[in-house]
Design a protein around this nucleic acid. Structure first.
Lengths: 310, 310
DNA sequence: CTCATCTATTTAAACGTTTAAATAGAGTAT
DNA sequence: ATACTCTATTTAAACGTTTAAATAGATGAG
């Protein structure tokens, strides 16, 4: 690997001059600039990150604290990471993965993305899921989704809408409930706690159990909202869309109505926000993104004809 | 952040001694060792990666070339990355994400994990999916899976077994076909090309199309193997397990028989292999891992009673 | 012609480590 | 006592950059 010294030697100038050309941090005459650039091109020189960082005290790296396994199922993490990587790379940064439970190595990255664990409150960081109050975050609004779901069902004439929530151990689960309550209130429909079931955990058989609990309670309901990918898989297995159904994520079960989470936009926005923060710019403390409802072919499509569900 | 100088000063020794204690690269008397360790503990000192790397010419980082989106669906990449991160972290390494199509920055990592793109043949790297011939790799054996699937069906008395392959654009797709052919040959069953359908692409509606093509061809079949997660989702939607069905991945569609890919083991093994290679140890050029068949509750469980399918 | 001013360039220190080489100090054999 | 060996420790160079400070060279004013 060619170093800056090699470039300097080949161009017949000092290393400082090369550095000045490459970062244009000092005026350099046209003639020497050309000599330097020619040498750079000839040697295929690329500055050595480690060396540069040592001096600049910047790692040009963004750390990601990988969430626990049980969070993963509610988030297309692979797509998320791919998009975040793209965003970081195009800004000259790299993404570094770190298990959330490892002890903090704060100096490995300039900033951190967190899905659920505080690294060290001192370090620059940004959240992607249900942050502690003080931390900046870019979030997808589950309350909005829940509200849209309820509105869609009530617009189609339903009045008793069941809700299978996420278990409260999942960060942000409360917001589904919040949106549900809010939409009911706005629609002037009385809240009936018997229509809400919280599953024990987030696995597919918990969805089955929750669904059966709802069915066994002899509470009649004419529409159902299921929060959570895994849960919904279970519910769909048992229910076969007997009542109009809206699930939290549209991506796995086709035919069922559900929400498209703006994963790419989410990752992109978050990375750029973090980079702005690192640049010292003031950033909005909270940025909310809205999922969009995708009506599937199964269930109640005919009931919704003429309803603008974009 | 405390530096090694601070530690040296506090302990009343030279920086070299501190370094020798921390890496035990030179003998140090018990007394000074204790002084140093006390100082380290008191200051909460952790060596600065950049500085260390600069000297050692090691980044202590493993790069991951993130695969294209259409590969992702056949691989639980989130779990894979989490496990790889754990393995790397416990060896003192970090994982660095890089888009496969970005121009190579080889010096960012000591070694590279590749899912489908060659970074630079010179760089130390290891493959996780269908490598070029010369590259070392740790792979999950789809041929083994296909063979197990065929065996399972023939053991249950089936003779005409349909195969919906992966599109050949997917790396490694040929191995499904290979295993299928091999198992048929061993079972003494004639190969009928009419029972094999290659879908146009890897999306769920391609599965639907492939299934319908097979059904329309009026070829009777008594068992079906579907390679690919997305494809299987489509097939299951249409078929509802009319014939005994085995799909490539067991994780999303429960009730259906399918394979459990040893994702955690896979990631772990691959990372350790790469680290061995970086240490200069000779490593096996190919390591094969076998997926295991999980028989679901739907379909032909009763036909398999008494058959040892572990 | 001298001095000041400005610009382009170089020198050298610094960042936080590791490590080869030098040194100090203790013990041992002569 | 002297020289030698061995061990524990320090000194200083090196890794690849950036950048403050120094310097050289040109231009212009007096």
């Amino acid at each position: 690997m060619a170093t800056i010294k090699d470039v300097a030697q080949l161009a017949g100038v000092s290393v400082a001059t090369v550095s000045y050309v490459l970062n244009d941090s000092m005026p350099v005459s046209e003639a020497t600039r050309n000599k330097v650039l020619a040498a750079v091109a000839k040697l295929g020189y690329q500055p050595h990150r480690q060396g540069r960082n040592l001096q600049r005290q910047r790692t040009l790296t963004i750390g990601v604290l990988l969430p626990q396994a049980n969070l993963l199922c509610e988030l297309d993490l692979a797509t998320w990471l791919l998009e975040a990587t793209n965003a970081a790379t195009s800004a000259g940064y790299s993404l570094l993965l770190q298990p959330a439970d490892s002890q903090a190595r704060g100096d490995l990255a300039d900033g951190w993305i967190s899905f659920g664990t505080v690294l060290d409150p001192q370090l620059p960081q940004i959240w992607a899921l249900a942050p502690p109050f003080e931390q900046p975050a870019v979030l997808c609004d589950a309350a909005f989704a829940a509200q849209r779901a309820v509105e869609t069902l009530t617009h189609a004439g339903m009045q008793r809408i069941g809700l299978i929530t996420l278990p409260r151990s999942i960060p942000g689960s409360a917001r589904w409930y919040l949106g549900y309550r809010r939409a009911l209130r706005r629609a002037g429909i009385a809240f009936d706690p018997a229509l809400v079931v919280e599953p024990a955990d987030n696995r597919f058989h918990d969805g089955v159990a929750a669904y059966e609990a709802l069915a066994a309670s002899e509470n009649d309901y004419d529409g159902l909202i299921v929060c959570g990918n895994q849960l919904a898989t279970g519910v769909v297995m048992v229910d076969h869309a007997k009542v109009p159904l809206i699930v939290s994520h549209s991506n796995t079960q086709r035919g069922i109505s559900g929400f498209r989470w703006p994963t790419e936009l989410w990752a992109h926005t978050l990375v750029r926000k973090l980079l702005q923060q690192l640049d010292g710019s003031a950033i909005a403390h909270r940025t909310w993104l809205n999922p969009s409802l995708v009506i599937g072919s199964l269930g109640f499509k005919e009931d919704l004809d003429g309803f603008n569900y974009v």
